[in-house]
């Protein structure tokens, strides 16, 4: 055991950890990002070209990625 941790905790500056998106807005953020991601995916489905692949695929993938994480948290599975 590292007994210095007790002292470090006592003297650590009072900066409690807060998440980027608070618990109250996780569902909204998650839902909005997933909706955006799925909409962009739909747009890509209509026009599958080498230009739309990065133009729509990357933002859609990013939106789905962060949206999935926040939707997991919003439904109580705190990943």
């Amino acid at each position: 055991m590292d007994s210095s941790l007790h002292e470090i905790w006592q003297t650590a500056p009072g900066s409690p950890f807060l998440p980027t998106v608070g618990k109250g807005s996780q569902f909204l953020v998650g839902f909005a990002l997933l909706l955006l991601g799925l909409s962009l995916t739909g747009a890509f489905a209509f026009n599958r070209s080498l230009v739309t692949l990065p133009a729509l695929g990357i933002p859609a993938s990013l939106a789905i990625a962060f949206g999935t994480v926040y939707m997991f948290c919003a439904v109580g599975v705190y990943v």
Binding site: R48, L50, L53, S61, I64, A65
Partner: peptide, 21 residues
């Protein structure tokens, strides 16, 4: 790591769809 893994999975699906098309 978590969003990056999902991102990479999604982008590979997009590339796959484009390649198949």
């Amino acid at each position: 790591r978590k969003p990056l893994i999902i991102f990479s999975s999604m982008i590979s699906i997009f590339v796959g769809i484009w390649a198949i098309s």
